Amino acid sequence: MARFHTLPVAAVDRLTDDSVALTLTVPPELREAYRYAPGQHLALRRQADGTELRRTYSICAPAPEPGGDGPRTLRVGVRLVDGGAFSTYALKEVNPGDELEVMTPAGRFTLDPAPGLYAAVVGGSGITPVLSIVSTLLAREPEARFCLIRSDRTTASTMFLEEVADLKDRYPERLQLVTVLSREEQQAGLPSGRLDRERLTGLLPSLLPVAEVAGWFLCGPYGLVQGAEQALNGLGVPRTRVHEEIFHVDAQASVRARTDAPAHSSVTARLDGRGGTWPVQDGESLLDTVLRNRPDAPYACKGGVCGTCRAFLVSGEIRMDRNFALEPEETEAGYVLACQSHPVTEKVELDFDR
C-alpha cells in the first residue's frame, strides 16, 4: 500500500522561469519503501486553508540499481500551472530544509531496461518521467538505443535542457535527440511549429525505423499525446508498444455520457487487507465513498490521470467518466480508476490490494 512520509528538502534548483526541480532526502530506514522504477511519480501533500492538496510529480532521476539499498534522494520536476495552488507553493515558498509529505512511488508509465530501440514523443514537462527512463536505460543496457523527440515553446522554457544535453554528450551514438520549438525558430534542425498528428505521421519515418521500435513513450499535454497516438496507429504500430502519460487534461476532455445511477447503491472495498461496505451518496465517486470511511485509500489527482487509485472490479458494474491512466489491457483485465467510477448496479465490490 502507498504511504505518506515526511521528507526533508535537500535542494531547490531553478530550471526555467516557471519550473523547479525539488530534491528530497530519503533516510536509510525508508530507502526500500521509496525504491522506484524509471518513469514513476510521487504524490506530494500539504494542508492549505483547511483543505488537503495532493499533486503528482514525476521522478526525473535515474532509478536505483536493482538489489541496492534504494535511493538516497528523490528528484522531481515541478512546472507552474496558472492558478495552481501546489505548483505556486513549490516555486515560491519551498526552500532547502523544509519538509514535505511524500507518498511512496506509483505509476505504470515505466520501462524495464532491455536491449533494443526505444522512442519518446514528449511536450513541455512531459520530459520529466522520460528523463528518468532514458538515463536509466542507457546506463544499464549497453545494447539499447533511444530516440527522444521533444516539443517546447522556446529554448528558455525548456525544462532539463542541460541534463538532456549531458546525456547526449555521454551517449552520442545511442541517443538521438530531436527538438521542435513551437514559438521560436532554430538556427538548425526542424522548423518551428506544433507536433500534431499530420506532422508526426511524416516526421517519424524520416527519423527512425518505426516498425523496429520496441516501445514508444508519449508524455505531455492531452493534444500532443493523442496526436502522437493517432500518428503511430496510422503507421501500423501495435497498441501494445505504445505507453502514455498525460499532463494538463482539459476538464471536459473525453468525459463519457452519464447514465442514471441506481437509487440505492453500496460499495464493498478491500484495502490493506481489511474490507468494509458503505452506501454511495448521490453523485459521488466510489473513491469518495471509500474515503469517507477509509481516509487511507490511495489517490493523488482525482482527475483520472495518475492512476494512483487503481482498483480491481471484483463484482458489479461501474461507469468511468474519464481514463487517462490505465492501459487497454488493464481495463480489459478488470481494473478501474476509483476516482472516476460510479455505480451502475446496486452493489459494487472493489479490491485495492490486487
Results as ranks from 00 to 15, higher is better:
Pro38Arg: 04
Thr56Lys: 03
Pro71His: 02
Gly68Tyr: 06
Gly39Trp: 01
Ala37Arg: 13
Asp69Ser: 08
Glu52Asn: 07
His41Asn: 03
Thr73Ala: 05
Asp69Gln: 09
Gly83Lys: 07
Thr73Met: 00
Pro71Thr: 05
Ala61Phe: 08
Val94Lys: 07
Arg72Leu: 05
Lys92Arg: 15
Tyr57Val: 06
Ser87Arg: 05
Asp82Gln: 14
Thr73Val: 11
Cys60Trp: 00
Ile59Thr: 05
Gly84Asn: 10
Ser58Leu: 09
Ala37Met: 04
Ala43Ser: 12
Ala90Asn: 09
Pro64Ser: 03
Ala63Thr: 03
Ala63Arg: 03
Gln40Gly: 03
Ala37Gly: 00
Ala63Glu: 06
Tyr89Met: 04
Leu91Trp: 13
Leu53Asn: 10
Gln40Asn: 01
Leu80Val: 05
Phe86Ile: 04
Arg54Ser: 09
Gln40Thr: 01
Gln40His: 01
Val81Asn: 13
Gln47Glu: 15
Arg54Asp: 09
Glu52Ser: 06
Gly67Ser: 00
Asp82Ser: 14
Arg46Val: 03
Glu52Pro: 02
Pro62Arg: 11
Ala43Cys: 12
Gly83Glu: 10
Pro66His: 10
Val94Trp: 07
Leu42Ser: 04
Pro64Tyr: 07
Leu91Ser: 07
Ala63Ile: 09
Val78Pro: 05
Arg54Tyr: 08
Arg45Lys: 12
Tyr89His: 15
Leu74Thr: 04
Thr56Cys: 15
Ala90Met: 15
Pro64Thr: 07
Arg75Cys: 10
Thr51Val: 15
Ala61His: 08
Pro64Glu: 08
Leu44Thr: 11
Gly39Tyr: 01
Gly68Thr: 13
Pro66Leu: 11
Gly50Trp: 12
Pro62Gln: 11
Leu53Ala: 09
Gln47Phe: 00
Arg75Ser: 13
Gly70Pro: 10
Gly67Ile: 02
Arg46Tyr: 02
Arg79Glu: 12
Leu74Tyr: 03
Ala63Cys: 05
Lys92Leu: 13
Val76Asp: 06
Pro71Cys: 04
Tyr57Gly: 08
Ala90Trp: 10
Glu65Leu: 11
Arg72His: 08
Thr88Lys: 14
Arg45Cys: 04
Gly50Asn: 14
Pro64Asn: 08
Ala48Glu: 15
Pro64Ala: 08
Gly83Asp: 10
Pro71Tyr: 04
Arg45Glu: 14
